[in-house]
């Protein structure tokens, strides 16, 4: 695998490494499938809205759009499985491997390693969240100093990681509606139908209001942040969003003297 320098310099500005190529490609697949699924799904939920019919017709109408929706859904499910495998692979490579080499493989250490992964919510996230609201509600002038992944980003991350296991199986069950009743009562289909569309609405609203705000409409990001394409985050954003990680990376790279303050 290509080695990514932790700090890249372009035009005299520092950029901090965040996402590898594999991760960025996964993200592209994730958002293209999710957008396609939303565009071929919501016209059905809101069939009586004026925009629904033209949009659905664009995707081939009732004859074609459901198939696009299902195939796209399968791709998203495959991505979910790949990502889970990818996560397990990284866990074993970076964490379990180290434990084996150091001959410290115990149940306790494994659990500890699992929960110290950067994506897993931890105590600091809870404290950061409280601190953030203290800051937002005028109790303090000092915003929390986020580490590599902030609690907001963990929300962003676990939204699809919670949503896909609900939307995917429910969608599959509705696709194979006859066969599924060999195992479960018919009312489950009604329940899945509601869960599929309500969960999708939750996901869409979350993406629209929360995620897109973070990366598109926030004043400092508008029209769009480029980290999802380049994998590198500009220094100013790094200071604003991940100050703890910023300080640590600068120290590791021997740039201690050039660390900028969180506040001007």
């Amino acid at each position: 695998m290509q080695k990514y320098p932790k700090i890249a310099i372009r035009n005299g500005k520092r950029y901090f490494f965040r996402f590898s190529l594999v991760q960025r490609v996964q993200h592209v697949i994730l958002f293209t499938t999710v957008i396609t699924l939303a565009l071929t799904g919501f016209p059905l939920r809101y069939y009586d809205q004026p925009w629904a019919k033209p949009l659905y017709e664009f995707f081939g109408g009732i004859e074609v759009a459901p198939y696009i929706h299902r195939i796209t859904g399968l791709i998203l499910l495959a991505l979910f499985l790949f990502h889970t495998g990818y996560w397990i692979y990284l866990f074993f490579k970076n964490r379990v491997g180290k434990l084996i080499r150091e001959k410290r493989v115990t149940a306790g250490n494994l659990v500890k390693e699992f929960f110290s992964q950067e994506m897993i919510p931890n105590g600091k996230d809870g404290r950061d969240m409280v601190d953030m609201f203290k800051y937002l509600l005028y109790f303090t002038n000092r915003p929390p100093r986020y580490d590599r992944i902030s609690w907001k980003e963990k929300f962003d991350y676990f939204a699809p990681y919670w949503g896909i296991p609900i939307l995917g199986p429910a969608g599959l069950a509705l696709w194979y509606r006859d066969e599924i009743t060999h195992y479960v009562p018919g009312i489950v289909l009604n329940a899945f139908y509601i869960m599929h569309t309500d969960e999708a609405l939750l996901a869409a609203l979350f993406l629209f209001f929360v995620h897109w705000y973070n990366v598109h409409y926030a004043p400092e990001k508008f029209p769009l942040g480029t980290v999802f394409l380049t994998g590198y985050l500009p220094e100013a954003d790094m200071i604003h969003e991940h100050y703890d990680e910023y300080v640590q990376t600068m120290k590791e790279e021997g740039l201690e003297n050039e660390i900028k303050p969180q506040h001007h």
């Binding site: 329940a191 309500d198 609405l201 979350f206």
Partner: peptide, 23 residues
């Protein structure tokens, strides 16, 4: 069915509302 619909209404309102407020 009523319960599932209600749970989702609450989930959507709470999560989206929370983040909109935060924003």
């Amino acid at each position: 069915i009523y319960l599932i619909t209600l749970v989702y209404k609450i989930l959507i309102a709470v999560i989206v509302g929370f983040f909109v407020l935060h924003r």
